[in-house]
Design a binder for these strands. Structure first.
Length: 758
DNA sequence: CTGAGTATT
């Protein structure tokens, strides 16, 4: 149960082998390992017994200890910088702890160098290359995995993809030589599905654990289990916050090492009273900083695209006035949010404008961003942060099975992170637009981890595939609500992914291989039965990427008209299919970027859909799922596709209400409206929908017309009419009518077939 | 008659 005795037992064995002649072969094995180490050039270093002095000596060259090549001048230049990092002072302390325990927690604030240095410290002591093992270091984001791997390859003077590499979706930059691998946490989770004990690793480092992404949380639960079965596996959990005790106690009271960061002090200012209109207060604060503070750029945190664009306009207008009336310097304002095209995101790195006259009032830039600027993007030169204290957060309501986004107060940890953005290059200031009292009493310590705010259907399927049978007792750091788990199990059961005993079915096992939500995965797996797997593959890919339709504020009408060119009378899914086919036509491929611009489509989304499609196609081929199409001339071409969509989405169906405007969802009797972005020729009585969005009203979005008979044909268990007796009148009557119609057809069919026998 | 905070496989 407890991990501690395991390490002790190993030590005892070591000792025992020295005195016990029957265990002498163990000593010999160890000796041969040592000579192996010498062969690779890390002289004198014995695995898990090294010191900082030995590592420093090896690092000093003249040859690269890992590949025997001579070290470059660049290497020595970087080495000087590395030795000045705060972590370096504690290398011995780190090694002692690493060597004496299986699991440790490492806390390092920003600027400590933990992400780049700790994996290298491990490499010099764990010597993965001589045992044919690897060190994994996980990151929540792809860009981080890539850029850190690049940096560390430079630091170790090796070619990226050789000794040091990275692995992210669509890109595996590793080779048989790779012993240090940066990867996304989602990627390690995928690997665990085929290698549940993570045998290829001798050490796993979970970085940025405080962010508590869905993948990190599942990995922590998994790794805690693996640790007790693999005493040889070392684990380091790295975090940036002071939340370390929680990680320590979760990992059986693992020891903690804390390293100071290196950032500049940030002065915090609070408002004396509550600000009713935080947007107005934010704009006012930005302008005050510009008018009265010393040189330095400003970062303002807001919640979403619309709010940001609005604030940018207002700030620019008011700044012009300040310039005219108060001799202020020039002010450039940049919006920053995820859906902004990369070229525009790049602009935030432009230098601030120069003063109008040399030595005059300073020129400045203001970046107005979402919390993308809190963790994902770092802008150097920010000296002033304006923090209204809100962000959009995902919430999941298991009762109506809907995920939605709500503007909510941030946590203390988030506020601290935001303030830190002002101290990256020199001392800064952070203006919090709430009272100190509110900060102390009203903000949560930490944000809710994602696992408590999501639909877990996909997570439960992953856990089942990972071999975790008892989900109720699975050791989550923060266990999700039982109702959320129940909903997930129920959904998977209806889909046929798990049976009534909670066991994974062959369909479920296959579905777990696809990087898709279960409903999409099931739809794709069943599509060959409907002779349209090629088409469903395209639609699935398009549903897995950000919206392909672009609708600029100044050209809404033109964009809507262009969308009309692709529209299909039966709804959005087939419209998406039309878009994809048009995009792949020779005409569009001649100049895809221009074609997308002309047709108000997102090139980025379409290209990424192409990537996803290719990946899904390979998984289908691996599972012997055939790629077929109904002949286009066949009258059932589109019907087959619509039925195939329904085979995965039969739980997301709505029926038009007879007494009122709008629709009612079949599963939860929710009144909904069809989202205005939907293209569908005539309002159909029955529709399936991809998404339920909760905003100003309840909307269903990405909708396709279906026939009620199909529900009985494709999901008879779910559409058992008895179960709807107490449900909505419209739904029940509709299903009964469909049943009667189906029965009539069956009768006449059997008559006909009897007739044909004569 | 109109929405997407940020990630990820």
């Amino acid at each position: 149960m407890s991990e501690e005795p395991v390490t002790k037992k190993l030590k005892a064995d070591d000792g025992a082998s020295k005195s016990n002649p029957y265990l002498a072969h163990l000593e010999n094995e160890k000796d041969s390992t040592v000579s192996n180490e010498n062969a690779t050039g890390i002289s004198g270093i014995i695995r898990h017994e090294s010191t900082a002095a030995q590592a420093n000596k090896a690092e000093d060259g003249p040859l690269n200890p890992f590949n025997g090549k001579s070290l470059s001048q660049k290497y020595f230049d970087i080495l000087k910088v590395r030795r000045n990092l705060p972590v370096h002072l504690q290398r011995d302390e780190f090694l002692k702890m690493f060597q004496s325990t299986q699991i440790m927690v490492f806390v390092g604030e920003t600027g400590s160098g933990k992400t780049t240095q700790i994996p290298q410290f491990v490499a010099y002591d764990d010597l993965p290359h001589i045992q044919g093992k690897q060190i994994a270091c996980t990151q929540p984001r792809r860009v981080a995995a890539m850029s850190v791997a690049k940096r560390v390859a430079d630091e170790m003077d090796v070619k990226l993809g050789e000794e040091v590499g990275y692995s992210i979706r669509f890109e595996d930059k590793t080779s048989s030589n790779t012993f240090l691998k940066y990867m996304t946490d989602g990627m390690l989770l995928r690997e665990a599905m085929t290698d549940p004990l993570l045998q290829r690793y001798s050490c796993i480092i979970l970085d940025e654990a405080h962010e508590r992404t869905l993948s990190t949380d599942i990995l922590m639960g998994l790794i805690k289990q693996v640790a007790s079965r693999r005493p040889d596996l070392k684990i380091i959990v790295m975090s940036a916050t002071l939340d370390a005790e929680k990680f320590q106690s979760y990992f059986n009271d693992a020891p903690l090492l804390a390293v100071p960061g290196r950032t500049h002090p940030v002065e915090i200012y609070y408002t004396p009273e509550y600000q009713r209109d935080y947007l107005e207060a934010a704009i006012r604060t930005v302008l005050q900083i510009h008018a009265s503070e010393a040189e330095g750029d400003i970062l303002l945190f807001l919640t979403g695209e619309e709010e940001i664009e609005d604030a940018c306009r207002k700030i620019s207008l008011e700044a012009d006035e300040l310039i005219r009336e108060s001799n202020c310097g020039p002010l450039s304002v940049y919006p920053l949010y995820g859906s902004l095209p990369p070229s525009q995101q790049q602009k935030i790195f432009d230098p601030a404008p120069a003063p109008f006259t040399p030595g005059g009032a300073p020129g400045r830039k203001v970046v107005v961003g979402t919390n993308i600027a809190e963790t994902s993007l770092t802008i150097d030169g920010i000296v002033y942060v304006v923090d209204p204290g809100f962000s959009k957060q995902k919430v999941y309501n298991p009762r109506i099975r809907v995920e939605s986004l709500l503007v909510a107060p941030i946590s203390k940890a988030s506020a601290q992170q935001r303030a830190g953005r002002a101290g990256r290059t020199r001392p800064g200031k952070c203006f919090r637009l709430y009272t100190e009292d509110a900060f102390k009493k009203e903000l949560n310590e930490q944000s809710y981890p994602e696992i408590l705010r999501s639909n877990l259907a996909n997570t439960v399927l992953e856990l089942k595939k990972l071999g975790i049978d008892d989900l109720v007792h699975f050791d989550f750091m923060d266990p999700p609500a039982p109702e959320t788990m129940m909903r997930a199990l129920e959904e998977l059961n209806f889909l046929g992914c798990i049976d009534d005993d909670g066991e994974l079915t062959p369909l479920g096992r296959m579905a777990s291989e696809f990087p898709l939500d279960p409903m999409l995965a099931v739809m794709l797996i069943k599509s060959p039965e409907f002779y349209c797997s090629n088409e469903i593959l395209s639609i699935t890919a398009l549903l897995s990427v950000p919206n392909v339709f672009v609708r600029p504020n100044n050209a809404r009408k033109a964009a809507d008209e262009m969308k009309g060119v692709f529209s299909h009378p039966d709804g959005d899914h087939l419209t998406l299919l039309n878009v994809y086919h048009a995009f792949k036509s020779p005409e569009a491929q001649l100049n895809p970027s221009q074609w997308c611009y002309d047709h108000f489509l997102s090139l980025r989304s379409l290209q990424s859909a192409d990537n996803v499609r290719f990946q899904l196609k390979r998984i289908m081929e691996r599972n012997d799922l055939s790629l077929v199409s109904t002949p286009f001339e066949d009258k059932n071409y589109y019907n087959n596709i619509r039925k195939s969509l329904l085979s995965g989405y039969f739980m997301q169906v709505a029926k038009r209400m007879s007494s009122r405007k709008g629709y009612i969802t079949v599963k939860d009797n929710q009144e909904v409206l069809i989202h205005p972005s939907t293209v569908i020729a005539q309002d159909s009585d029955w529709v399936l929908y991809n998404e339920f969005v909760l905003t100003t009203k309840n909307y269903i979005r990405t909708v396709t017309a279906i026939k009620p008979e199909w529900l009985l044909e494709l999901a008879p268990a779910y559409y058992d009419i008895e179960a709807f007796k107490k449900g909505n009148v419209d739904v029940r009557m509709g299903l009964e009518a469909a049943k009667a119609k189906a029965d009539r057809l069956k009768k006449s069919d059997s008559k006909r077939s009897k007739a044909s026998y004569k």
